[in-house]
């Protein structure tokens, strides 16, 4: 560290608002200033470049893109839904997609949809993760990924027109397949 600088005892120069004792100011050496200025320059270049041409994989220099996409007021809100079956509950039922249930959250699963399209058998890993995270619960023998769409008109959602589209499924006895895109 170069904050070896020179300690200066300076007389109060602020209109007498400080106590009447002398005050110590620690100065930085030229080297100390130089490397700090260099750090600022590197950070500035990294963050600006990340914002202009980077993507999420550049983190921590990724763009600050929270709520940055432009959504049509007349489009649809689409979210992934996870449905499962168990030996004692063979009908599909919805379960939360979050980290403490399947080790991933919904946005992560949505972001990895290309992986599921390519290798639908990865859905079994969600059942495995659930078995590790909630061992007291019955093991899933079926996992189905569904896209739920709620249409919007003028920025107002029409919840009654919400539809579900199965995208991919894995079952213990039937294997895995992609159902939609």
């Amino acid at each position: 560290m170069t904050q070896t600088g020179v300690a200066v005892r300076a007389a109060d120069g602020d209109g007498g608002r400080t106590p009447s004792t002398t005050r110590t100011t620690l100065r930085l050496s030229a080297v100390g200033r130089a490397w700090r200025a260099g750090v600022v320059a590197v950070l500035a270049v990294g963050f600006v470049a990340g914002s202009l041409v980077g993507d999420d994989h550049w983190w921590p220099f990724s763009p600050w893109r929270m709520f940055s996409t432009s959504s049509s007021p007349d489009g649809a809100v689409r979210v992934f839904v996870l449905e499962v079956t168990t030996p004692n509950e063979p009908g599909w039922r919805e379960v939360p997609i979050n980290l403490w249930v399947v080790g991933l959250n919904r946005a992560e699963l949505e972001g990895r949809w290309p992986l599921v399209q390519e290798r639908p058998e990865v859905l079994v890993t969600l059942a495995d993760a659930h078995a590790r995270l909630e061992p007291e619960q019955e093991r899933w023998d079926g996992v189905r990924l569904v896209r739920r769409s709620t249409p919007m008109a003028g920025g107002v959602p029409d919840r009654e027109a919400t539809t579900d589209q199965p995208l991919a499924v894995w079952t213990a006895d039937g294997g895995a397949q992609v159902l939609g895109s």
């Binding site: 202009l52 600050w64 929270m66 709520f67 940055s68 432009s70 959504s71 049509s72 919007m152 920025g155």
Partner: peptide
């Protein structure tokens, strides 16, 4: 400031007229 840059980059200037917050 960089969040604004990202909005312009990814959402375009029409971001201000979009339904982004409504979706949120």
């Amino acid at each position: 400031f960089l969040a604004a840059v990202a909005k312009i980059r990814f959402g375009g200037w029409e971001w201000v007229q979009s339904a982004t917050i409504a979706r949120a």
